[in-house]
Simulated assay, not measured.
Amino acid sequence: MPIAEIPLSVWRTHGQDFVFRGQAIRYWVAGQGEPLLLIHGFPTASWDWHYLWQPLARRYQVIACDMLGFGDSAKPLEHDYSLLEQADLQQALLAHLGIVEPLHLLAHDYGDSVAQELLARHYEERLEIASCVFLNGGLFPETHRPVLTQKLLLSPLGWMLGRVFSREGLARSLRQISGPQNRPSETVLDDFWSLVQSNDGPRILHKLIGYIPERRQRRDRWVEAMQRGEVPLRVIDGAHDPISGAHMVERYRQLVPRPDTVLLPGIGHYPQIEAPLAVLKHYLAFRGGLLVPAQRVVGS
């Protein structure tokens, strides 16, 4: 049974705003129950979760925001973007909403790094994380394989690329990292571009891309947090992803004790869009088994 999508035009009507350090941040909340924070990736936005939003909201209180520099949130030009600040933003959103219960995380791509930082803060007793699930992302800098656009944005000429970055450039990148049977439609590409373009977003892409070297700087802190083993973790990963697919999962299995991993054959970098039913199935199975002490490796 397919999952109904939420059109971007409808999604936008349900957004709310709060102010974080003087900047307007767009966020969404739905459902009741244990809080589940969804953290999106680069260069897209919280609409990435639209297939999973309603099914998850039937079970949990789901929370998501367009992080600073993304989607329909503010995108200040003269700003030094940081994964640490994005983690601060997530905590500020939780405070704004009055969330004090233990928090569950579901993250993707850039959002994986934000979730890793939140996990490290859990062990510093700065918030309480009940569980964390990672979708495709650069959990280990040594396994991350950036696409050409990312490499160019990291170069000294990155600011120029951002200013001429177009829908077609975005489309080429997204097609390159999708599963062979799951290329995004023209309508989906239009919607992704609308989110990137909002608030003159392309002009700051070269600033946002600084998350790649920042990951290298924080690697030991974040890997050590995953290795602690006190917070239940799972990886659900599109195996076909050239950036952080099966090769990343192999590294995860080497470094993380009792690794709980799910590989989705033929699925690329955006499993929550390419295979939302599979992601939902494996996420709910993970949540249902949190009281089971032994974790296991899952194939799909």
Results as ranks from 00 to 15, higher is better:
L77T: 08
Y123R: 04
G169N: 02
N136Y: 04
A246V: 08
L233F: 00
N199S: 10
P232L: 08
L38E: 12
A285V: 00
P259C: 13
S73C: 10
E128P: 14
G201D: 11
C65D: 12
E5A: 12
L119D: 14
G69S: 08
P232G: 11
R26Q: 09
H240C: 09
R183P: 00
Q272T: 06
A30H: 06
K151Q: 13
D190M: 05
L103F: 01
L195E: 07
A120I: 01
Q90P: 10
G138I: 02
R183G: 02
H108A: 12
P76G: 12
L161C: 08
L205E: 14
T149E: 14
K281Y: 00
E5S: 14
H122F: 03
Y270E: 07
S173N: 11
Q176W: 03
Q176P: 00
G71K: 03
G71V: 06
A130Q: 15
I209S: 08
L161W: 03
G71R: 03
L290M: 13
P141E: 13
M160C: 12
V100T: 10
A107S: 15
P293E: 15
L277V: 04
H79D: 10
G245F: 04
V29Y: 01
A239T: 09
S198E: 07
D88R: 13
Q176D: 03
G22W: 00
Y252I: 11
L148W: 14
L93T: 07
H50A: 15
L105C: 02
V249S: 14
L189E: 13
E214G: 05
I99F: 00
S46F: 00
R216A: 05
L83R: 06
L153T: 12
L233Q: 15
Q86E: 09
L290G: 13
Y211R: 06
I6N: 05
Y252S: 04
I236V: 09
L148Q: 12
T143R: 04
R175E: 13
V100H: 11
A130R: 15
R219P: 02
G111Q: 10
R234Q: 15
R175K: 05
D191M: 03
L284H: 02
P35N: 10
Q116P: 02
E214S: 08
R12L: 12
E230C: 08
L68N: 06
I177G: 02
L154V: 05
G158Q: 03
P76W: 00
A278R: 09
F286V: 05
H282A: 10
G111Y: 09
L277I: 03
P259K: 04
L264V: 09
D17K: 00
V292T: 14
W28Y: 13
N136C: 11
M248S: 10
A120L: 04
G179A: 04
C65I: 01
Q61I: 01
L154M: 11
T44F: 08
D112I: 01
P259D: 14
G268E: 09
Y211W: 03
E34V: 09
R287P: 15
H240I: 07
